[in-house]
């Protein structure tokens, strides 16, 4: 039986005569039982979504990369395209005798490219990694210039 089966589901599946046995196994095996929803809500993905904000002077890109080290994060700017590559090491190595009873943190090797909304000075970009969030700040090539142009129709 899956150790992670939720209590309420397991109780529905097991006949009442086996309830005592289930309780015994539960107390033996399940030190921790997840009480979250069956599904991963949309909000879970929001925890790792890339955001781009543009101000008059700069473009700020934020990407949550929990569990990385700054030395394992590469940031590259080519023209208006920003590429982020990050690698995370496994929490469990070969000699670790522990075993997974739940594994949701899937990313070990991550790459994302984004086309920036305005022209930037890539060589002046700065990046920081604090509390698992990568922040890249790129000065705009033409600070204060409008993002849109009005085209007159003849």
């Amino acid at each position: 039986m899956n150790m992670l089966a939720r209590i309420r589901n397991a109780e529905e599946l097991l006949p009442s005569t086996l309830g005592g046995l289930h309780e015994l196994f539960r107390s033996m095996l399940d030190q921790v039982t997840d009480l979250g929803p069956e599904w991963l809500p949309e909000g879970s993905a929001a925890g790792r979504a890339l955001t781009v904000e543009t101000s008059e002077k700069e473009v700020t890109v934020k990407l949550p990369l929990p569990g990385c080290e700054s030395k394992n994060i590469d940031v590259e700017v080519i023209g208006d395209q920003l590429t982020i590559h990050a690698a995370r090491t496994e929490v469990k190595d070969e000699n670790d005798k522990r075993h997974y009873i739940r594994r949701e943190r899937s990313f070990m090797d991550y790459q994302e490219s984004v086309l920036l909304p305005v022209k930037v000075r890539g060589h002046e970009a700065k990046a920081s990694y604090v509390d698992g969030i990568l922040t890249v700040t790129l000065p705009r090539e033409n600070p204060g210039s409008p993002d849109s142009h009005v085209v007159k129709v003849d």
């Binding site: 030190q31 991963l40 909000g43 569990g67 469990k92 943190r105």
Partner: peptide, 21 residues
């Protein structure tokens, strides 16, 4: 937001890793 977790079970206890960027 519900954080993603890894849960590891060992002889001495359980370790939970929460992603909380």
């Amino acid at each position: 937001v519900m954080p993603l977790v890894d849960i590891l079970d060992g002889d001495d206890g359980v370790t939970i890793y929460f992603e909380v960027p």
